[in-house]
Amino acid sequence: MRRPVANMGTRRAMSNLGLLRAVLWTLVAVAGLGAVGLYTYSATRPSLTQNLGDGDYQLTTASGEAFDRQSFAGAPSMLFFGFTHCPEVCPTSLAEMTSWYEALGEEAKDLKAYFVTIDPERDTADIIGDYVAWTGHVTGVTGTPEEIEKAAKAWAIYYQKVPLEDGDYTMDHTASIFLLNREGNFEGTIAYREDSATALAKLRKLLAEG
Protein backbone atom coordinates (compact mmCIF):
# COMPACT_ATOMS: atom_id res chain seq x y z
CA MET A 1 0.00 0.00 0.00
CA ARG A 2 1.36 3.39 -0.91
CA ARG A 3 2.30 5.52 2.07
CA PRO A 4 0.82 9.00 2.28
CA VAL A 5 3.37 11.64 1.38
CA ALA A 6 3.28 15.20 2.66
CA ASN A 7 2.60 17.66 -0.07
CA MET A 8 5.17 20.23 -1.16
CA GLY A 9 3.61 23.04 0.94
CA THR A 10 3.69 20.94 4.09
CA ARG A 11 7.33 19.93 3.56
CA ARG A 12 8.29 23.57 2.94
CA ALA A 13 6.49 24.71 6.13
CA MET A 14 8.21 22.02 8.19
CA SER A 15 11.57 22.99 6.72
CA ASN A 16 10.98 26.67 7.51
CA LEU A 17 9.92 25.79 11.06
CA GLY A 18 13.12 23.85 11.60
CA LEU A 19 15.18 26.73 10.26
CA LEU A 20 13.36 29.17 12.54
CA ARG A 21 14.05 26.97 15.55
CA ALA A 22 17.73 26.79 14.67
CA VAL A 23 17.95 30.57 14.33
CA LEU A 24 16.18 31.12 17.65
CA TRP A 25 18.47 28.71 19.49
CA THR A 26 21.49 30.42 17.93
CA LEU A 27 20.25 33.80 19.16
CA VAL A 28 19.71 32.37 22.65
CA ALA A 29 23.25 31.00 22.68
CA VAL A 30 24.73 34.29 21.48
CA ALA A 31 22.75 36.24 24.09
CA GLY A 32 23.96 33.86 26.78
CA LEU A 33 27.58 34.29 25.75
CA GLY A 34 27.09 38.06 25.67
CA ALA A 35 25.67 38.05 29.19
CA VAL A 36 28.58 35.97 30.46
CA GLY A 37 31.03 38.30 28.74
CA LEU A 38 29.36 41.38 30.20
CA TYR A 39 29.38 39.87 33.69
CA THR A 40 33.05 38.94 33.36
CA TYR A 41 33.94 42.45 32.17
CA SER A 42 31.95 44.10 34.95
CA ALA A 43 33.46 41.83 37.58
CA THR A 44 37.06 42.29 36.48
CA ARG A 45 37.31 45.87 35.20
CA PRO A 46 39.04 48.31 37.58
CA SER A 47 36.95 50.90 39.39
CA LEU A 48 37.11 54.42 37.96
CA THR A 49 38.04 55.67 41.45
CA GLN A 50 40.48 52.90 42.30
CA ASN A 51 43.57 55.11 41.96
CA LEU A 52 41.95 58.41 42.90
CA GLY A 53 44.35 60.48 44.98
CA ASP A 54 47.49 58.64 43.92
CA GLY A 55 50.27 61.01 42.99
CA ASP A 56 53.63 62.42 43.97
CA TYR A 57 52.67 65.73 45.56
CA GLN A 58 54.42 67.38 48.50
CA LEU A 59 52.31 69.87 50.44
CA THR A 60 52.55 71.50 53.88
CA THR A 61 50.05 71.83 56.70
CA ALA A 62 49.42 75.15 58.42
CA SER A 63 51.63 73.97 61.28
CA GLY A 64 54.52 73.25 58.91
CA GLU A 65 54.25 69.46 58.71
CA ALA A 66 54.83 67.62 55.44
CA PHE A 67 51.63 66.47 53.77
CA ASP A 68 51.42 63.93 50.94
CA ARG A 69 49.45 60.91 49.75
CA GLN A 70 50.48 58.88 52.80
CA SER A 71 49.14 61.49 55.20
CA PHE A 72 45.62 60.12 54.74
CA ALA A 73 46.52 56.66 56.03
CA GLY A 74 45.66 55.70 59.59
CA ALA A 75 42.29 57.37 60.06
CA PRO A 76 39.08 58.02 58.09
CA SER A 77 38.96 61.56 56.81
CA MET A 78 37.14 64.30 54.94
CA LEU A 79 38.98 66.16 52.17
CA PHE A 80 37.96 69.50 50.68
CA PHE A 81 39.68 71.77 48.15
CA GLY A 82 38.90 75.48 48.47
CA PHE A 83 40.39 78.92 49.18
CA THR A 84 40.25 81.51 51.93
CA HIS A 85 38.81 84.30 49.77
CA CYS A 86 35.86 82.09 48.86
CA PRO A 87 32.62 84.06 49.30
CA GLU A 88 30.18 81.23 50.04
CA VAL A 89 31.00 77.59 49.22
CA CYS A 90 34.10 77.24 51.40
CA PRO A 91 32.83 78.91 54.60
CA THR A 92 29.56 77.01 54.23
CA SER A 93 31.40 73.70 53.79
CA LEU A 94 33.59 74.40 56.84
CA ALA A 95 30.50 75.23 58.89
CA GLU A 96 28.82 72.01 57.77
CA MET A 97 31.86 69.89 58.61
CA THR A 98 31.99 71.50 62.05
CA SER A 99 28.29 70.79 62.61
CA TRP A 100 28.82 67.14 61.67
CA TYR A 101 31.58 66.81 64.24
CA GLU A 102 29.23 68.24 66.84
CA ALA A 103 26.39 65.91 65.82
CA LEU A 104 28.61 62.81 65.81
CA GLY A 105 30.29 63.61 69.10
CA GLU A 106 32.43 60.73 70.36
CA GLU A 107 31.73 58.77 67.17
CA ALA A 108 33.97 61.21 65.29
CA LYS A 109 36.96 61.02 67.64
CA ASP A 110 39.12 59.42 64.92
CA LEU A 111 37.76 61.42 61.99
CA LYS A 112 40.23 63.80 60.32
CA ALA A 113 39.41 66.73 58.03
CA TYR A 114 41.63 68.58 55.57
CA PHE A 115 41.13 71.87 53.74
CA VAL A 116 43.57 72.07 50.81
CA THR A 117 43.87 75.45 49.13
CA ILE A 118 43.60 75.83 45.37
CA ASP A 119 44.84 79.44 45.69
CA PRO A 120 48.42 79.06 46.96
CA GLU A 121 49.39 82.53 45.71
CA ARG A 122 47.35 84.08 48.52
CA ASP A 123 46.85 81.22 50.98
CA THR A 124 50.09 80.92 52.92
CA ALA A 125 50.38 78.50 55.82
CA ASP A 126 49.60 81.25 58.35
CA ILE A 127 46.59 82.52 56.42
CA ILE A 128 45.01 79.13 55.86
CA GLY A 129 45.78 78.15 59.45
CA ASP A 130 43.90 81.18 60.76
CA TYR A 131 41.06 80.51 58.32
CA VAL A 132 40.28 77.01 59.64
CA ALA A 133 41.32 77.50 63.27
CA TRP A 134 37.81 78.29 64.53
CA THR A 135 36.55 74.83 63.50
CA GLY A 136 38.73 73.03 66.03
CA HIS A 137 38.94 70.02 63.71
CA VAL A 138 40.00 70.97 60.19
CA THR A 139 43.67 71.03 59.15
CA GLY A 140 44.65 73.66 56.59
CA VAL A 141 47.01 72.57 53.82
CA THR A 142 48.94 74.64 51.28
CA GLY A 143 51.95 74.34 48.97
CA THR A 144 53.58 75.73 45.87
CA PRO A 145 51.37 76.28 42.81
CA GLU A 146 53.08 73.34 41.11
CA GLU A 147 52.47 70.94 44.00
CA ILE A 148 48.89 72.11 44.47
CA GLU A 149 48.31 71.43 40.78
CA LYS A 150 49.69 67.90 41.21
CA ALA A 151 47.43 67.24 44.19
CA ALA A 152 44.35 68.61 42.45
CA LYS A 153 45.07 66.49 39.39
CA ALA A 154 45.55 63.38 41.54
CA TRP A 155 42.14 63.90 43.14
CA ALA A 156 40.46 64.95 39.86
CA ILE A 157 39.69 68.39 41.28
CA TYR A 158 38.64 71.14 38.91
CA TYR A 159 39.81 74.67 39.70
CA GLN A 160 40.34 77.83 37.69
CA LYS A 161 41.21 81.44 38.36
CA VAL A 162 38.39 83.82 37.40
CA PRO A 163 39.30 87.52 36.89
CA LEU A 164 37.04 90.15 38.46
CA GLU A 165 36.20 93.60 37.11
CA ASP A 166 38.16 95.36 39.86
CA GLY A 167 41.38 93.63 38.82
CA ASP A 168 41.22 91.04 41.59
CA TYR A 169 40.27 87.41 41.03
CA THR A 170 38.24 84.59 42.53
CA MET A 171 38.43 80.83 42.05
CA ASP A 172 35.99 78.38 40.51
CA HIS A 173 36.40 74.87 41.91
CA THR A 174 34.92 71.49 42.76
CA ALA A 175 32.65 71.85 45.79
CA SER A 176 32.28 68.24 46.96
CA ILE A 177 33.76 66.87 50.17
CA PHE A 178 35.63 63.60 49.60
CA LEU A 179 35.34 60.76 52.11
CA LEU A 180 38.42 58.57 52.61
CA ASN A 181 38.70 55.37 54.59
CA ARG A 182 41.39 54.43 57.10
CA GLU A 183 43.71 53.36 54.29
CA GLY A 184 43.32 56.75 52.64
CA ASN A 185 41.26 55.39 49.77
CA PHE A 186 38.24 57.12 48.27
CA GLU A 187 34.87 55.94 49.61
CA GLY A 188 32.45 58.57 48.32
CA THR A 189 31.47 62.22 48.49
CA ILE A 190 29.19 64.60 50.31
CA ALA A 191 27.73 67.14 47.92
CA TYR A 192 27.67 70.86 48.61
CA ARG A 193 24.76 71.61 50.96
CA GLU A 194 23.68 67.98 51.01
CA ASP A 195 20.93 67.12 53.46
CA SER A 196 22.44 66.86 56.93
CA ALA A 197 20.83 63.51 57.71
CA THR A 198 22.22 62.02 54.50
CA ALA A 199 25.68 63.45 55.17
CA LEU A 200 25.72 62.07 58.71
CA ALA A 201 24.60 58.65 57.48
CA LYS A 202 27.52 58.61 55.04
CA LEU A 203 29.95 59.60 57.77
CA ARG A 204 28.63 56.98 60.19
CA LYS A 205 29.03 54.33 57.49
CA LEU A 206 32.59 55.54 56.83
CA LEU A 207 33.45 55.44 60.53
CA ALA A 208 31.85 52.03 61.05
CA GLU A 209 33.86 50.54 58.21
CA GLY A 210 37.01 52.26 59.36
Rank of each mutant, 00 (worst) to 15 (best):
D168E: 11
G18I: 02
E65I: 06
T60W: 01
D110H: 13
Y131S: 11
V141Y: 01
L24S: 06
E147P: 14
G34V: 01
L164G: 00
L200V: 13
R193I: 11
D172A: 15
A73D: 02
A75F: 07
G64K: 08
P76G: 04
A191I: 04
L207Y: 13
A208S: 15
M14H: 09
I127M: 05
D68H: 02
G82S: 10
G140T: 06
I190P: 00
G55F: 13
T144W: 08
V141P: 12
A125H: 08
G64D: 07
T10H: 01
E165W: 00
K161R: 11
T189P: 03
N7A: 11
L94M: 10
A43T: 03
L33M: 08
D195H: 07
Y41A: 14
C90Y: 13
T44S: 11
L180W: 03
S77Q: 01
G64P: 15
H173K: 09
M8H: 08
G18N: 04
S47F: 12
G9V: 11
E147M: 07
M8E: 10
N181T: 01
G9K: 12
F67G: 13
P46W: 09
F81K: 00
A73H: 07
T124K: 04
G55Q: 05
E96K: 01
K150E: 13
G136C: 07
F178E: 12
Y158W: 04
A29V: 11
M8I: 08
E102M: 09
T174K: 05
S42H: 10
E102H: 14
A95I: 05
G184A: 07
I157Q: 14
N185Y: 13
C86N: 03
V36C: 13
D166C: 00
L94H: 06
A75V: 06
M1T: 08
F115T: 07
Y158Q: 05
A29K: 01
D123W: 01
E187V: 03
V89A: 11
S63T: 05
D172T: 09
F72L: 12
S42M: 11
R21E: 12
A152Y: 10
Q58R: 09
S47H: 12
F81S: 04
G55Y: 09
D123P: 15
H85S: 14
A199I: 12
L79W: 08
E194D: 15
T135C: 12
A151T: 03
P87A: 06
G184V: 04
T98C: 06
N185R: 15
V116C: 14
Y192G: 05
S93M: 09
Y57N: 09
T189I: 09
R3A: 10
K109T: 15
T44P: 00
R204M: 07
N51A: 14
T189D: 08
L19R: 06
F80G: 02
G18Q: 06
V28P: 08
N185S: 15
T142Q: 05
L94R: 02
T61D: 06
G210C: 06
R45I: 02
E106K: 03
R69K: 03
